[in-house]
Amino acid sequence: MSDTNTGRLGRLVPAAAVGLLFAVMAVTVLSADFGDFSEGLEAFEGESVVHNIGYALFNLGEHGVATIPSEGFLAAFLIVAVALDVALDGAVYLAKREEDGSIVSAVGQAFTDGGRDGGER
């Protein structure tokens, strides 16, 4: 769909604003001095992050097998799981409809008849 008009501004002003932002950030980035990165790059030579996550999952980090500390990933996995769960519930709730005094879900009519007695399908 090509409805890119916002009605009042057209596309010129947003394009100009975005272009300006890109220019400013590009100039900032290019003129910034990041220093020497050699140390950081060596930390990952020949190591596999995924293997280390596996070691951390089974609590093998203490035994000297793991080379990269990856407990942060485990925390991330758990929190992400909770957050996605909450999001799913929220989405389902927002999607519910109220019709004729009773709550009807979006998929109500597709799988059930909403508790109506009899009637044609």
């Binding site: 916002t6 501004l9 604003a17 975005v18 932002l21 400013v24 100039v27 900032t28």
Partner: peptide, 25 residues
């Protein structure tokens, strides 16, 4: 959308101001 536009312009202005006054721009 217009709010977002204003945000963008504000961000540009902020970066420019901080950059010029901070000397790193």
């Amino acid at each position: 959308s217009q709010y977002a536009l204003l945000l963008t312009l504000g961000l540009v202005a902020l970066i420019l101001t901080l950059g010029v006054s901070g000397g790193w721009f």
